[in-house]
Design a protein around this nucleic acid. Structure first.
Lengths: 140, 140
DNA sequence: AGAAATTTGTCCGTATGTATC
DNA sequence: AGATACATACGGACAAATTTC
């Protein structure tokens, strides 16, 4: 079989479908995703492709993977309050756009955006903090 | 050949070496990294492993990759002037730590940090904004 | 303008190592 | 100890974007 990936690559299509299940609640927060081999059978894709799809969700912060255990969904913490102590080093939240951000996106100040904060540590010590912002559901 | 990855996996070792070259200036900002096939020969690793190593650097924001062109180290705009900053989608600046950030780093509020903002566009439209923060001269 | 070469992107199949149950 | 599941690594093949000639 050739490698036709008209439009979207397979791993993104698979990632989209899995994201759909997670966000629709079909796969509840905190529960395990199907195993890699199960997804391999279901989507008739190679394991590498399935793993690539899962990697997409992991980068988005939607799931976490534990060696030898599996990949599980993680709840999105909405209504983030800055004083709220973060339990995780990777959390999602909603936040109102400040002047800078609002101008960049071309929206009004205060528009609600999706934010994600990721804390990077080395030997337990915080090395850097990265925050990403984007609009709800940009055409992907 | 077996797959021994005692201690660190190969792709991380390769990533570490490449990072070293970038930070030492051996690969200057804005210049192209060796091609994947060149790295494959040099490190005697498979292309997949080399690509995984590059992916690490990409996640760290050290390099950017363009289809058909190559992977280049990110040009660092040591900018501080807002006029130049406004023109670029990638600017560095200094900023005082707010309560949130200060707590994460374990420093006092108001401590001066390095910040970097990167604007990601698709077809000219802002898709996301990423802000990173870290201390001056971390171990490295 | 266009063809060829270069380079990254995607996908497959397989094998082996390592962690968890 | 055995079964299950994720992590790493290899090699090959074709697709797509860019650069070069």
């Amino acid at each position: 079989m050739p490698t036709p990936h008209y439009g979207q690559p397979r791993y993104r299509v698979i990632a989209d479908q899995l994201r759909e299940r997670i966000e629709s609640g079909s796969i509840p927060p905190g529960s395990l995703l199907p195993t890699e081999s199960a997804l391999t059978s279901e989507f008739r894709a190679s394991r590498g492709t399935v793993r690539q799809a899962i990697a997409v969700l992991r980068e988005e912060g939607l799931v976490t993977t534990e060696h030898g255990r599996g990949t599980s969904t993680r709840p999105i913490t909405l209504g983030h309050d800055s004083k709220q102590a973060a339990k995780s080093d990777n959390e999602r939240f909603e936040i109102a756009a400040d002047a800078d951000i609002a101008k960049l996106f071309g929206v009004e100040i205060g528009t609600i955006l999706i934010g994600q904060q990721q804390v990077h540590r080395r030997n337990g010590v915080v090395e850097s903090v990265v925050r990403g912002y984007w609009l709800h559901r940009p055409g992907q």
